[in-house]
Each structure stands twice: as C-alpha cells, then as structure tokens.
Design a protein around this nucleic acid. Structure first.
Lengths: 246, 246
DNA sequence: CGCTTACGGTGACCGACATCACCCAAATAT
DNA sequence: ATATTTGGGTGATGTCGGTCACCGTAAGCG
C-alpha cells in the first residue's frame, strides 16, 4: 500500500519498535494501548510547524518517525536552532505539564510521523499511571541535561570554530557511519541553518568550513560530510572545554 | 537554642513552610513523613561544595534554606555560573535519575541548610509514590524551561550589555524591593562572578557598570544596586530579544 | 603595624566576527 | 528559453570585547 511521502507508518503503539528505546514510549502493554487510544497520529510534510514558541500548550507531540527542528527567535528576527529532535522524542512536555507557553518552535525537517496527545489526556495519563510519570521524569532529565550541555557550549567556548567543531563531532557520535577514510555524516542543514545552530552568521560558517576543507579536516560532497581528521576537531574542542566531564 | 551560623533550622519536613511553595516538597503528609525519614539534613557554611560536575551521582540535595551557586568549568579554567538555586530547589535530580554524572557544580553562597537523599532511597521514593514522580516531573520541567531561557539569552543576545541588562532585570523581578527612587537589589556576587554569570570578563563588567552609572541607569552602593531607569535596561534587552514570549 | 590579598577601575591594543556588498552555480519557476 | 530563487563563496571594513598591564582602595592577617 502506498503511504504518503514515502514514509512507512508506525500505526500501532503496541507494536512500535520505538517502544524499546524511546524513553517515553517504553510502557507496559496496557500503557501502550492506552497511549494508542488517545493519541492522534499524523504524517506531516517537511517544513510543517508543530507548535510555535509562545503558544498556549495544547498538548505533547511525539515524533514517531522523522526529525524536527527546535528553535527560538528574537524580536529582531534572529533565530537560534536549539536542537534537532529525533524519532522517539516527546516535544512540548514541560510546557504541557506546567501549563506555560511553549518555549520553542518545532518544525519538521523531513516528512515525519507525529503523534499528538491533548493536554488533559496527557495530564490524566501521567497522573494516573506511575510508569508514565516516571518515564516523563526520565525524558525531562535527558532534555535538561542536553540543555545543560548546550549552555556549556554556548557560554564557555571561546571561538565559533570551537562550536562548529563540537557540533560536527556531536553529529558524528549521534549518526555518523564509519568509512575507511573517516566518519561520514548526512547534514540536512544549510550553512544558514548551521549558523543559527551555533549562534553565528552564514558567512562565518562558510569560511570556517572552507578552512576545514583546505586543512583536510573534513570533505564536503553535497549534503554529505566526511570527517577525515577527527583529531583536529577534538583539539579545537578540547582546548576550550572538556567534552565529557572530568 | 543557638543554631550554627545563625541559621534557623527547618527540622521537620512535615511542618516546613517550603512544603507549600517548593514544588518538590509539596507532598501529602505521608509523603513528607517518608521524606523526613530518609533525608540527612545538614547546615553548611558559605562556600561548601555539595557536588562537583563529573561526580557519580550519590543522590539529590534539597536546599531548605540559603542559596547555592550552580556552575560549570572548562578545561582551561574558565567558569560559567549557570544559575543561583534558591530555597526549595532540588539539585542533582536529573543526574540521580539517569545515573549519569552531575553536570554542574553546586556550592553554597551563604550558610545554608541542605537535605541530602541517597540515590537508591530517592529512586525508591519516586518509583513507589506517584505524587513524588509527578513532582519530580514538574521540578524538572521548571529546570528545563529555565535552562531554555538561559540558552536563549546566551545564544540570541548580540552584546554583553544586553546580557547584563537582562541579568539585572531578572534580579529585580526575582528579589527586588521597590523604593521611591527605583528598584533595589542586593548583589552577593563580585564583578568577577557576574562576568562568569553572563560569559564575559571582569573588566567588561566593570566598564559596563561604570557606563550604566554614568548614564544614571543604576546606582551602586556596596553590594546594593538601585535601578533608577528601568526603561534603558528594557530597551537594551528588548532590542535584541523579547523577554516574554510573543 | 606593614604586608598580602581581593576587588574594582582604566588605558592600550588587537583579533575574531558581524556586516555589507557582490559574484557564481544550480535548481525552480514562468 | 529566460527569469527568479536558493545556497554557497569571498573581499573590505568596522567594532565589540578579550587580553595585558598597571593602579588604588579596603580588608584581612602575620
């Protein structure tokens, strides 16, 4: 059967493979069934906006498949991309729990399947099922720690080269595939996006990447980067701040 | 009876006034009793280090009274003060839940009473008491949102003047007292500390504060600031980024 | 009491980056 | 086909703020 956007749909929570590694969806079979009962699953095209920062929280969005860009914008139009959410992540949980506005904007980066759970359903789910509140606490712990790492990177790195190096290394660790020549990563973001991701300008990203290329550190072919000399990037990062804690 | 460090001790969780506004401690009477049972309450002098980033998580620390500085340090010695934790806050929760190293260092800023709960006790507490896991989820939501705001401030503000202005405004909102001439705040931090709080150098903080003084925006008398012209600070902040969401 | 240490104040210097301006190639629309 | 848009590449220029260097004052301590 043809599916929209060529995306294979995960239509049963109870049989979804995310259940085994997504922290939130790791529920008992009754829990999964209850979740399946109340969620609204939709396939969105690339570039769909799930929610906008400042919106009153309608509920949570669970990324079943695909990726979403989480960003925040200043009044003068500058945008900061805070994180790329992967399949299995729950978005808008803190806002939904506290009843405060979403603090970020979420937009799909590719065709994505997303489950929506209405706020009152979610709250009831979490309040009546201990496993759900525990999972929520775990999910939020992870989000908090990743935010903390972001703060470290933004606040302690001395140069933008360092932040770019860190970003590339993070991508390698998260989704790199090893090749004989080095680690290859697919980069869905434009230079503009990367700039917003590390809080700088497009021109600077272009120049830094050119520099990395010239020095034989990375090879760029379309949207595919190959990290040829990881050491240089690690030096850039390590000089300013330890990657793992001491 | 004389208490150490002139600090009145909150010795019963069940009768502690924090229970009414501290998000985590807001428990049923059985919950409070159980918490009181397993916590170790200690009064620390100023400058005590509760935990260090990178430590394996021993458990959580609840600030009953006082304040603690949360910071992170890069390998080259630069320090970023991430947040000042107030009474009622739970520290080290995400690390304890995930079993990952503490990502921050916590140090008391003044004589403080702190309750410690061992990791396995805390996990059991949270796993067996739905109200505890719910409160934990709420606490973590708050921490996450505040981290998010920090990221915004670090990543989107264009100048350090803007960050300093935002910091001062935050202090006014959190703990300012109104006077005929403006809002007065007590600043326990040195210029050096302030610099670390907004990711800049001591010299720059000194210069910026001089500038604010010259322009009649703030008045500095020892550790007491008086904000005479809030508008200027708001303009500095607002130019770069809206304080509240749209 | 001088001596040291911590904190604050300032000047000189300069390098990393934001900004502006323009060009080119490829993709997409008309 | 031509026009437009989108993403990438690069030079010139200005400036914010980090760095270094030094000084003054106040507090703590032998």
């Amino acid at each position: 059967m043809p599916t929209p956007y060529n995306l294979e749909i995960r239509d049963r929570c109870t049989e979804c493979e995310i259940r085994n590694h997504g922290t939130f969806c790791k529920l008992s079979s009754e829990g999964s069934a209850a979740l399946e009962e109340m969620r609204y699953s939709t396939v969105y095209p690339k570039g769909s906006v799930l929610f906008v920062e400042g919106d009153v929280p309608r509920g949570v969005y669970i990324v079943c498949r695909g990726e979403a860009k989480l960003s925040t914008t200043s009044s003068d139009g500058k945008t900061l991309i805070v994180r790329i959410a992967e399949a299995g992540e729950v978005l808008g949980a803190s806002a939904t729990i506290l009843g405060r506005p979403y603090e970020l904007t979420a937009e799909t980066l590719e065709p994505s399947q997303v489950s929506f759970v209405r706020r009152d359903d979610f709250l009831r789910f979490v309040e009546t099922r201990p496993e759900a509140s525990l999972n929520t606490a775990r999910v939020l712990s992870e989000k908090y720690q990743s935010a903390q790492r972001e703060i470290r990177s933004l606040g302690l790195s001395r140069t933008t080269a360092e932040r770019l190096a860190r970003l590339i290394l993070d991508w390698c660790d998260a989704s790199g595939t090893e090749t004989p020549r080095g680690t290859r990563i697919r980069v869905l973001l434009t230079h503009e996006d990367i700039a917003q991701r590390i809080g700088t300008t497009r021109e600077t990203v272009t120049r830094l990447l050119s520099d990395f290329r010239r020095r034989g550190v990375v090879e760029v072919k379309g949207s595919s980067f190959t990290v040829l000399d990881r050491g240089v990037l690690e030096d850039l990062v390590g000089a300013g701040l330890t990657h793992a804690a001491v």
